[in-house]
């Protein structure tokens, strides 16, 4: 590069090369994206032809009779992700605020690193922890307690086994927490000092500064962090497979076992021996791909609108 800069002609040539190279990489992503979409669609054709639109609404999953429908894994994916978001988002924002604003300075670096390290733990370790440590605690303490005090709500009915949707949501929440928390902390750290100090100067309390200055300033970044976590929760495979219970039943109860798209694929791909079975699994993959695409796309559009409109 240094040599290229010494003469004008070479520099232009180098720049052109660099530009086309990076352009090729960027286009490569698009080609890959389209390629995956086409491949998934093509491989799932036997299932699309056989079941048509009813694949999306049917609750059947019968490998013996070759009848398949996506609704149970789709609902399982959405419910476990929603649970995880409900738990992880407030928790992560709290953690981020503490680290960015409230913690004494000697605490910030070690705590911040510890949270980032959580993201480096392989998901199968979360799964095993969920199964061997969290599930028994859920079965013996948390779920009976919920049942005693909130059992009248259908969500908390049923036998407390410790394995099911609720435990899956909890494990997922823990897995996405480091992603949301560390990005959100960085966003809070970027809030200009003079803005905050102006607010404090006007007599605002810490809570008011957080609510009226820091959160509005960092909104875009926080939403980005939340969707980063959501994308991960939607596609998480191993940890969910360990604790979700892997059963094809729809139930109102969060204690009941269910299934997610990713765990269905992980469980059944190797032994799917009929063509329609295999195609149905690939179609599930396609559905997950589209779901993630729609969620992230909607987030982008919403972000742009709120930034353009609000200006905050």
């Amino acid at each position: 590069m240094k040599q290229n800069m010494s003469t004008g002609g070479k520099k232009a040539w180098g720049d052109t090369l660099f530009r086309s190279l990076t352009l090729a990489f960027a286009l490569g992503i698009l080609v890959l994206f389209a390629g995956i979409l086409v491949a998934l669609w093509h491989e799932s054709l036997p299932a699309i032809e056989k079941f048509g639109f009813s694949f999306l609404t049917s609750a059947a999953w019968n490998p013996v009779k070759d009848e398949f429908g996506a609704i149970i894994p789709v609902v399982g994916t959405l419910v476990s992700t929603l649970l995880a978001m409900l738990i992880a988002v407030p928790l992560s924002i709290g953690v981020a605020l503490f680290l960015a604003e409230l913690a004494p300075s000697w605490m910030r670096a070690p705590f911040g690193t510890a949270i980032e390290l959580l993201a480096a733990i392989p998901s199968i370790v979360y799964g095993m922890w969920g199964l061997f440590v969290l599930a028994p605690i859920m079965a013996d303490h948390v779920q009976p307690w919920l049942q005693t005090y909130l059992g009248f709500i259908p969500l908390f009915s049923g036998a407390p086994m410790g394995i099911g949707m609720l435990t899956a949501g909890l494990v997922l929440a823990l897995m996405i927490l480091p992603f949301i928390a560390s990005v959100t902390r960085d966003v809070f750290l970027m809030v200009p000092k003079n803005l905050k100090e102006a607010a404090y100067g006007m007599g605002a309390t810490t809570w008011e500064v957080v609510r009226d200055v820091m959160i509005p300033y960092g909104k875009k970044g926080i939403v980005g962090a939340v969707f980063l976590g959501m994308g991960r929760a939607l596609g998480e495979t191993m940890a969910v497979t360990f604790v979700i219970g892997n059963a094809y039943h729809l139930s109102w109860s969060l204690f009941a076992p269910g299934n997610s798209i990713a765990s269905t694929l992980a469980n059944e791909f190797t032994e799917a021996d009929s063509d329609v079975y295999l195609a149905s699994l690939i179609e599930l993959g396609l559905v997950l791909f589209l779901m993630t695409f729609i969620v992230l796309g909607a987030a982008q559009i919403w972000l742009r609108r709120s930034v353009a409109g609000g200006g905050k």
């Binding site: 490998p63 013996v64 360990f242 892997n246 059963a247 076992p257 299934n259 021996d273």
Partner: peptide
Amino acid sequence: VGNAKSVPWPVGLGGK
């Protein structure tokens, strides 16, 4: 239910 490598289980939990 029937006889296959994976079947529509009427009840229960699935382990991998």
